[in-house]
Amino acid sequence: MMHYFISLLILIAASSFALAEAPDAYFDARQRMVSEIVDDVVETASQLGRERLNPRVLDAMKSVKRHEFVPPENRKRAYKNRPLPIGHGQTISQPYMVAIMTDLLDLDPGDKVLEVGAGSGYQAAILAELVDRVYSIEIIAPLGKEAAQRLKRLNYDNVDVRIGDGYYGWKEQAPFDAIIVTAAGSHIPPPLIKQLKPGGRMVVPVGSRFMTQELLLVEKNDAGDITTRQLLPVIFVPLTGSH
């Protein structure tokens, strides 16, 4: 019996040690991932119309533990600069895209942000590092529940996750300073545009789950007029040198 008890103690001690050590185990990988993003973004700067990403966004990318947001079988690949499957036919976006999209929102600490499509909760966690309040809607119930639990466990108390249809936004909390729609539908829902504050920004990635073709940035000016910017997240000019 005593023998059993001691083994159990050792096991508990070992696992708590492992828990304490876990973040460090991925620390370097995370830093490497961010420096990779920084390098890639330098090349894309002219397309995005900005010299470099906001250091706050990069800090957020450095501190959010992406490995916590992917299924166990994909943990080893969590810090690869690529999208990964998270089950339910959904993916966690490529870190490079997450960084660019977040940066495009031009967030201030006091902002209120709406996310449509919580997925794993990773994007919400990044946003939560940068602003006061994040509201996230997920239509696939099991995914939404997992994301909510995960964010709670990781102490992202400033994120509210709701299971439901994102088309109508989150009326009770509207208007928002920024909105991020993680998967484009056949059109941008008019209710979401309404829930954007004057001066607010909305980002929508366009393309398939594993490949973002372009980023759509919707801007509402102070007069309430809407314009969009369609950004290629890549340095590419359609004409060869002579033009």
Binding site: D40, L232, F236
Partner: peptide, 18 residues
């Protein structure tokens, strides 16, 4: 074909959809 090398060099940097 002429753009293949350029696109391949942009792999991981958002170039693959091209």
């Amino acid at each position: 074909w002429i753009i293949l090398p350029e696109i391949l060099s942009l792999q991981g940097k958002g170039g693959m959809p091209l």
